[in-house]
Amino acid sequence: MSTSVATRKRRRIPLVDRIALIICGLVLAIAVIGPWIAPHDPYAVNLSQRLLGPGPEHWLGTDINGRDVLSRILTGARTTLLATAVVLAVTVVIGVVVGTLAAVGGRVVDEIIMRITDVGLAVPSIVLALGFAVALGPGIGSAIIAVSVSWWPGYVRLIRTVVRETMQSEFVESAVALGVGRRRLILRHVLPNSLDILYVQVTLDVAAVMLVISGLSFIGVGAQVPSAEWGAMIAAAADNVTSGWWALVFPGLAIAITAIAFSLVGDWLRVLRDPTLKQEN
């Protein structure tokens, strides 16, 4: 009985997760083609049309400089998601390389790496980003560097744990018994059997990293105000929220919906991968 229920669940994606998957696909598509489907120029200042409410000409209204909010959201998706993708790419690469080193490099290497990651985990990314903003000048680049620097220790820990677990497998012992060398052992036997967890973790982290990047832009150390980045748009609109709430609420909704969709998909992947969680649902 319980097995048949489990199989049926795996075949049918739950409705919520299906919607989340569609939203994620949509957001990714917008990130690619957004600038071409934007109905207006996202940077064209038109002071005669400032702070128009949502209507037939400007579906989501205009901001304080008369720029079309919808166009800016569509264009901004690329900046926000690209920054998130860069952060995750950098931290995953560091995590895999350093985490594997910690797992297989012996006790001394492991101790050194783990103490450094402890320090990394102790520094909040916002504080770090403020430091980078001062040192490098504010901009989306500083935000990317700052979030990457504060994000990699998590991946190092994750990969270290998974690699150590895989090293205990019998097929790894059997490869050693065949005379397989260390490098081949790690690259062809251990890592291919360890990295599937990244699909889950990366999807879950898309939401978190995106929030931090937008948050940094909001407080003014990330993307700067004229650029169409979701966090920066909110920051610019915050001053006149009473006369034009739409310029603040819609980019905010874009962030919230995207973040929720990605974390739902991440959770769904996690449950798929772990049969024990599936039974609880």
Binding site: E170, F171, E173, S174, A175, L178, V180, P192, N193
Partner: peptide, 29 residues
């Protein structure tokens, strides 16, 4: 290891690498 002394494990379920084809694993030594 492998070339002068071979080892057959107890459990064929866990002693094979699940993500590689059996051909790849047979050719490996």
């Amino acid at each position: 290891r492998g070339s002068r002394v071979g080892l057959v494990f107890q459990d064929p379920l866990t002693s094979l690498n699940p993500v590689m084809t059996i051909g790849w694993q047979i050719m490996q030594p």
